[in-house]
Amino acid sequence: MKVAQRFPWYDSPWMNRYFAAREYLAAHNPEKLKAFDAAMDKLRTRQDFEVIEIENFLDQKDHEAAKAVIRETGRDRYEMHELKQFGRFVVHNHETFNDLQARMADRIGELVGEEVEPCYNFLSMYWAMGVCPIHMDAPLAKWTVDICIEQTDVWPIHFSRIVPWPEPLDKISETWEEDLKNDPDLDYRSFELQPGNAIIFSGSSQFHYRDRITGAVPGKDAFCNLVFLHYVPKGTAAYVDPKDWAEYFGVPELVFE
Protein backbone atom coordinates (compact mmCIF):
# COMPACT_ATOMS: atom_id res chain seq x y z
CA MET A 1 0.00 0.00 0.00
CA LYS A 2 1.40 3.40 -0.97
CA VAL A 3 1.27 6.11 1.66
CA ALA A 4 0.94 9.84 1.01
CA GLN A 5 3.06 12.25 3.02
CA ARG A 6 0.29 14.27 4.68
CA PHE A 7 2.10 15.50 7.78
CA PRO A 8 5.36 17.43 7.74
CA TRP A 9 7.00 16.68 11.08
CA TYR A 10 9.79 14.10 11.25
CA ASP A 11 7.95 11.47 13.29
CA SER A 12 4.81 11.35 11.17
CA PRO A 13 5.05 8.01 9.26
CA TRP A 14 2.70 6.35 11.76
CA MET A 15 0.04 9.00 11.22
CA ASN A 16 0.38 8.76 7.45
CA ARG A 17 -0.14 4.99 7.65
CA TYR A 18 -3.07 5.35 10.02
CA PHE A 19 -5.02 7.53 7.57
CA ALA A 20 -4.06 5.35 4.60
CA ALA A 21 -5.30 2.24 6.44
CA ARG A 22 -8.59 3.88 7.44
CA GLU A 23 -9.25 5.03 3.90
CA TYR A 24 -8.55 1.57 2.49
CA LEU A 25 -10.77 -0.17 5.05
CA ALA A 26 -13.59 2.34 4.58
CA ALA A 27 -13.58 1.65 0.84
CA HIS A 28 -12.97 -2.11 0.85
CA ASN A 29 -13.75 -3.63 4.23
CA PRO A 30 -16.08 -1.56 6.46
CA GLU A 31 -16.48 -4.34 9.03
CA LYS A 32 -12.73 -4.45 9.61
CA LEU A 33 -12.77 -0.67 9.90
CA LYS A 34 -14.95 -0.99 13.02
CA ALA A 35 -12.39 -3.30 14.62
CA PHE A 36 -9.53 -1.02 13.54
CA ASP A 37 -11.18 2.07 15.03
CA ALA A 38 -12.02 0.27 18.27
CA ALA A 39 -8.38 -0.77 18.65
CA MET A 40 -6.99 2.67 17.83
CA ASP A 41 -9.32 4.37 20.32
CA LYS A 42 -7.26 2.74 23.09
CA LEU A 43 -4.24 4.70 21.87
CA ARG A 44 -5.96 8.07 22.15
CA THR A 45 -5.39 10.35 25.13
CA ARG A 46 -8.18 11.74 27.27
CA GLN A 47 -8.78 15.46 26.75
CA ASP A 48 -8.29 16.45 30.38
CA PHE A 49 -4.78 15.02 30.73
CA GLU A 50 -2.13 17.51 31.82
CA VAL A 51 1.64 17.17 31.97
CA ILE A 52 2.77 15.64 35.26
CA GLU A 53 5.89 16.97 36.98
CA ILE A 54 7.75 14.67 39.38
CA GLU A 55 10.57 15.84 41.61
CA ASN A 56 13.22 13.29 42.55
CA PHE A 57 11.79 10.71 40.15
CA LEU A 58 15.13 8.90 40.36
CA ASP A 59 16.51 7.88 43.72
CA GLN A 60 20.24 8.27 44.23
CA LYS A 61 21.02 4.69 43.18
CA ASP A 62 19.13 4.90 39.88
CA HIS A 63 20.47 8.39 39.19
CA GLU A 64 24.07 7.28 39.68
CA ALA A 65 23.43 4.19 37.53
CA ALA A 66 22.15 6.40 34.71
CA LYS A 67 25.21 8.64 34.89
CA ALA A 68 27.42 5.55 34.85
CA VAL A 69 25.79 4.42 31.60
CA ILE A 70 26.66 7.78 30.05
CA ARG A 71 30.28 7.58 31.22
CA GLU A 72 30.86 3.94 30.40
CA THR A 73 28.92 3.26 27.19
CA GLY A 74 31.36 3.09 24.29
CA ARG A 75 30.89 5.28 21.26
CA ASP A 76 30.55 2.14 19.16
CA ARG A 77 27.07 1.81 20.68
CA TYR A 78 26.05 5.39 19.89
CA GLU A 79 23.42 5.79 17.18
CA MET A 80 24.44 8.67 14.91
CA HIS A 81 21.36 9.02 12.68
CA GLU A 82 19.97 11.98 14.68
CA LEU A 83 23.21 13.88 15.06
CA LYS A 84 22.59 16.32 12.20
CA GLN A 85 18.90 17.07 12.82
CA PHE A 86 18.87 16.96 16.63
CA GLY A 87 22.48 17.43 17.67
CA ARG A 88 22.35 14.30 19.82
CA PHE A 89 23.70 10.81 20.23
CA VAL A 90 21.19 8.09 21.06
CA VAL A 91 21.34 4.68 22.73
CA HIS A 92 18.17 2.60 22.54
CA ASN A 93 17.03 0.03 25.09
CA HIS A 94 20.13 -0.13 27.27
CA GLU A 95 19.77 -2.90 29.84
CA THR A 96 19.96 -0.41 32.73
CA PHE A 97 17.02 1.57 31.37
CA ASN A 98 15.10 -1.57 30.40
CA ASP A 99 15.22 -2.54 34.07
CA LEU A 100 14.22 0.95 35.23
CA GLN A 101 11.34 1.08 32.77
CA ALA A 102 9.96 -2.27 33.87
CA ARG A 103 10.17 -1.33 37.55
CA MET A 104 8.36 1.97 36.94
CA ALA A 105 5.43 0.60 34.90
CA ASP A 106 2.96 0.29 37.78
CA ARG A 107 3.86 3.74 39.09
CA ILE A 108 3.42 5.34 35.68
CA GLY A 109 0.10 3.55 35.17
CA GLU A 110 -1.23 4.96 38.44
CA LEU A 111 -0.13 8.46 37.48
CA VAL A 112 -1.66 8.47 33.99
CA GLY A 113 -4.82 6.63 34.97
CA GLU A 114 -4.53 3.41 32.98
CA GLU A 115 -2.48 0.22 33.09
CA VAL A 116 0.59 0.45 30.87
CA GLU A 117 3.37 -1.74 29.57
CA PRO A 118 6.88 -0.75 28.43
CA CYS A 119 7.36 -0.12 24.74
CA TYR A 120 10.89 1.23 24.22
CA ASN A 121 13.35 3.63 25.80
CA PHE A 122 16.43 5.57 24.84
CA LEU A 123 19.22 7.67 26.24
CA SER A 124 19.44 11.03 24.48
CA MET A 125 22.73 12.90 24.77
CA TYR A 126 22.33 16.41 23.38
CA TRP A 127 25.38 18.55 22.85
CA ALA A 128 25.93 22.21 21.99
CA MET A 129 23.90 22.02 18.74
CA GLY A 130 20.97 20.26 20.42
CA VAL A 131 17.42 21.06 19.31
CA CYS A 132 14.11 19.19 19.31
CA PRO A 133 11.96 20.18 16.30
CA ILE A 134 8.24 20.51 16.90
CA HIS A 135 6.41 17.22 16.38
CA MET A 136 4.08 14.57 17.69
CA ASP A 137 5.27 11.04 18.32
CA ALA A 138 3.76 7.78 17.17
CA PRO A 139 1.48 6.09 19.75
CA LEU A 140 4.37 3.79 20.62
CA ALA A 141 5.14 6.80 22.82
CA LYS A 142 1.59 7.48 24.01
CA TRP A 143 3.00 7.96 27.50
CA THR A 144 6.50 9.40 27.70
CA VAL A 145 8.56 9.83 30.84
CA ASP A 146 11.25 12.45 30.18
CA ILE A 147 13.99 12.21 32.84
CA CYS A 148 16.81 14.72 33.18
CA ILE A 149 20.09 13.01 34.12
CA GLU A 150 22.57 15.89 33.90
CA GLN A 151 22.90 19.20 32.08
CA THR A 152 24.88 22.42 31.93
CA ASP A 153 21.78 24.61 31.90
CA VAL A 154 18.03 24.36 32.31
CA TRP A 155 16.58 23.66 28.87
CA PRO A 156 12.82 24.36 28.60
CA ILE A 157 10.47 22.01 26.78
CA HIS A 158 7.13 23.23 25.43
CA PHE A 159 3.88 21.24 25.20
CA SER A 160 0.57 21.93 23.54
CA ARG A 161 -2.72 20.94 25.10
CA ILE A 162 -4.05 17.49 24.26
CA VAL A 163 -5.30 17.48 20.69
CA PRO A 164 -7.05 14.70 18.74
CA TRP A 165 -4.90 13.10 16.12
CA PRO A 166 -4.84 15.79 13.49
CA GLU A 167 -6.51 15.62 10.14
CA PRO A 168 -4.12 15.85 7.18
CA LEU A 169 -3.03 19.40 6.55
CA ASP A 170 -4.67 21.01 3.54
CA LYS A 171 -1.41 22.62 2.56
CA ILE A 172 2.05 22.16 4.01
CA SER A 173 3.58 25.62 4.01
CA GLU A 174 7.24 26.47 4.38
CA THR A 175 6.40 28.08 7.73
CA TRP A 176 4.44 25.15 9.21
CA GLU A 177 6.75 24.87 12.24
CA GLU A 178 6.33 28.48 13.27
CA ASP A 179 2.63 28.30 12.44
CA LEU A 180 2.21 25.42 14.91
CA LYS A 181 4.32 27.08 17.59
CA ASN A 182 2.35 30.34 17.30
CA ASP A 183 -1.13 28.82 17.14
CA PRO A 184 -2.93 30.25 20.22
CA ASP A 185 -5.46 27.42 20.13
CA LEU A 186 -2.72 24.94 21.06
CA ASP A 187 -2.22 26.65 24.44
CA TYR A 188 1.47 25.81 24.96
CA ARG A 189 2.98 25.49 28.42
CA SER A 190 6.70 25.39 29.19
CA PHE A 191 8.47 23.16 31.70
CA GLU A 192 12.00 23.10 33.09
CA LEU A 193 13.69 19.96 34.34
CA GLN A 194 16.39 19.62 36.96
CA PRO A 195 18.63 16.51 37.20
CA GLY A 196 16.78 13.60 38.75
CA ASN A 197 13.37 15.10 38.00
CA ALA A 198 10.93 13.96 35.34
CA ILE A 199 7.83 14.93 33.43
CA ILE A 200 5.17 12.65 31.99
CA PHE A 201 3.40 13.72 28.82
CA SER A 202 1.45 12.17 25.98
CA GLY A 203 3.88 12.25 23.09
CA SER A 204 1.32 11.14 20.51
CA SER A 205 -1.31 13.74 21.43
CA GLN A 206 0.72 16.80 22.35
CA PHE A 207 2.89 18.85 20.04
CA HIS A 208 6.20 19.39 21.79
CA TYR A 209 9.55 20.98 21.05
CA ARG A 210 12.73 22.43 22.48
CA ASP A 211 14.45 25.45 20.93
CA ARG A 212 18.16 25.21 20.33
CA ILE A 213 20.11 24.65 23.51
CA THR A 214 22.16 27.56 24.82
CA GLY A 215 25.07 27.49 27.22
CA ALA A 216 25.39 29.83 30.17
CA VAL A 217 28.51 28.28 31.68
CA PRO A 218 31.60 30.22 30.50
CA GLY A 219 34.13 28.10 28.69
CA LYS A 220 31.94 24.98 28.71
CA ASP A 221 29.89 23.57 25.86
CA ALA A 222 26.23 23.17 26.64
CA PHE A 223 24.85 19.67 26.94
CA CYS A 224 21.77 17.90 28.25
CA ASN A 225 21.49 14.15 28.87
CA LEU A 226 17.98 12.77 29.10
CA VAL A 227 16.36 9.35 29.32
CA PHE A 228 13.00 8.72 27.70
CA LEU A 229 10.80 5.83 28.84
CA HIS A 230 7.89 5.12 26.51
CA TYR A 231 4.78 3.20 27.52
CA VAL A 232 1.62 2.04 25.77
CA PRO A 233 -1.72 0.97 27.26
CA LYS A 234 -1.54 -2.58 28.53
CA GLY A 235 -2.51 -5.09 25.85
CA THR A 236 -1.97 -2.79 22.87
CA ALA A 237 1.57 -3.81 21.90
CA ALA A 238 0.16 -6.35 19.42
CA TYR A 239 -1.23 -3.68 17.11
CA VAL A 240 0.50 -0.41 17.98
CA ASP A 241 3.07 -0.87 15.17
CA PRO A 242 1.76 -0.47 11.57
CA LYS A 243 3.90 -3.35 10.34
CA ASP A 244 1.72 -5.66 12.46
CA TRP A 245 -1.66 -4.40 11.23
CA ALA A 246 -2.01 -6.76 8.26
CA GLU A 247 -1.72 -9.82 10.49
CA TYR A 248 -3.49 -8.46 13.56
CA PHE A 249 -6.56 -7.22 11.68
CA GLY A 250 -6.53 -10.00 9.10
CA VAL A 251 -6.21 -7.66 6.12
CA PRO A 252 -3.18 -8.61 3.97
CA GLU A 253 -3.49 -5.38 2.01
CA LEU A 254 -2.38 -3.36 5.05
CA VAL A 255 1.26 -3.82 4.10
CA PHE A 256 2.97 -0.51 3.43
CA GLU A 257 5.59 0.25 0.82
Rank of each mutant, 00 (worst) to 15 (best):
D99P: 05
K32Y: 02
L180F: 14
S190M: 12
E117N: 01
D153H: 02
L254I: 13
R88E: 07
M1K: 02
L83W: 04
E55P: 02
V69T: 08
L83A: 07
A198I: 06
R210C: 10
D62M: 10
R103M: 13
E114R: 15
L25Y: 04
D37S: 05
G130V: 06
V154D: 06
P13F: 00
H135S: 06
M136W: 04
R107S: 10
E192L: 13
R88G: 00
V91W: 01
A237R: 14
P195L: 02
A38C: 01
L193M: 04
V112Y: 00
R88Q: 04
Y78R: 00
A102S: 14
Y10G: 10
M15C: 08
M15L: 12
F19C: 09
S173E: 14
P156A: 06
L180G: 03
D37P: 01
Q206M: 08
R161W: 03
G87Y: 09
V163C: 05
E247C: 08
E79M: 13
Q194I: 09
M15G: 09
K171M: 14
K142I: 10
P118N: 00
A198N: 01
K32S: 13
R88Y: 01
E23P: 04
D62S: 08
E50I: 14
R210P: 04
G203F: 05
D211N: 08
E110M: 15
E174A: 14
F36H: 09
P168N: 01
F19S: 02
H28C: 06
Y248M: 07
R189H: 07
M1N: 06
P118C: 02
G203V: 02
C119V: 07
R107Y: 13
A222K: 01
M1W: 03
R46H: 13
P242H: 03
R189F: 00
F249P: 06
G219M: 03
P166N: 11
L25V: 14
D153F: 01
F223P: 05
A27P: 03
I172T: 11
E115D: 12
R44D: 10
E257W: 05
R77G: 00
R22E: 13
K34R: 10
F207P: 02
A68G: 15
V69Y: 02
L186S: 12
K67F: 03
G87I: 11
P252T: 12
G219D: 03
G113D: 04
P252G: 11
Q194T: 11
R210I: 10
